[in-house]
């Protein structure tokens, strides 16, 4: 869906979509593919449109079960197989319970505000709620561009203001495809 910034609103560099997915439980588990299980919550092109959607969403720390919220640029699906992601990868940050809401907000604000300074490389960001820990990740197009991935890591460290012992790892989507696991 095409959206434009409203009159007097602050345009963003890109259009973005919010997606939501939750791992199906019980008998639905096998019949529902990951893609079918993902729903677009909203599309935005301005700072104001972003807040309108975000303010109505459940905060990341209040999400339950095995759920993920994705914010991706318009035209890019949050799937490894998407053309924009095929050669890409992601930085993964594992967070102990209690930190996710603040870190997730800081991550998306940095992305929307173009703080990463890596051109068109960033594809989107994901927050993944799990039982023991929460995980945030940021996806980029080219897993083999070391300069790009280092810059993303450095910006992540700065904007998230993470505790010093936080574990960060980079995983290519190709590896994820091979082991069929996100993390």
């Amino acid at each position: 869906k095409d959206v434009e910034p409203g009159p007097g609103e602050h345009a963003l560099q890109y259009t973005y979509c919010f997606w939501f997915s939750r791992k199906p439980t019980g008998r639905n588990q096998q019949s529902t593919s990951f893609e079918k299980n993902m729903k677009i919550i909203g599309t935005f092109r301005s700072v104001e449109q972003f807040w309108q959607i975000y303010s109505h969403m459940i905060r990341a720390n209040e999400l339950t079960g095995h759920s993920d919220v994705h914010v991706f640029k318009g035209g890019i699906k949050p799937l490894w197989e998407d053309k924009a992601n095929r050669l890409g990868g992601k930085w993964i940050v594992r967070l102990r319970k209690g930190l996710v809401a603040r870190c997730w907000e800081n991550l998306i604000l940095a992305m929307l505000g173009e703080q990463f300074m890596v051109g068109d490389e960033v594809c989107g960001a994901v927050v993944s709620i799990r039982f023991q820990e929460d995980i945030i990740s940021i996806w980029n197009r080219s897993a083999n561009e070391n300069q790009v991935t280092s810059r993303i890591r450095d910006t992540l460290c700065r904007v998230l203001n993470l505790p010093p012992n936080t574990i960060m790892e980079y995983k290519t989507h190709n590896e994820s495809l091979k082991d069929r696991s996100s993390f």
Partner: peptide, 21 residues
């Protein structure tokens, strides 16, 4: 080309008073 850059505090200000910026 030119990129539209916003810092965190500006984005947060837009949340609290969208038309005041």
């Amino acid at each position: 080309g030119t990129r539209i850059i916003y810092d965190r505090s500006f984005l947060l200000k837009c949340r609290s008073s969208p038309m005041a910026n």
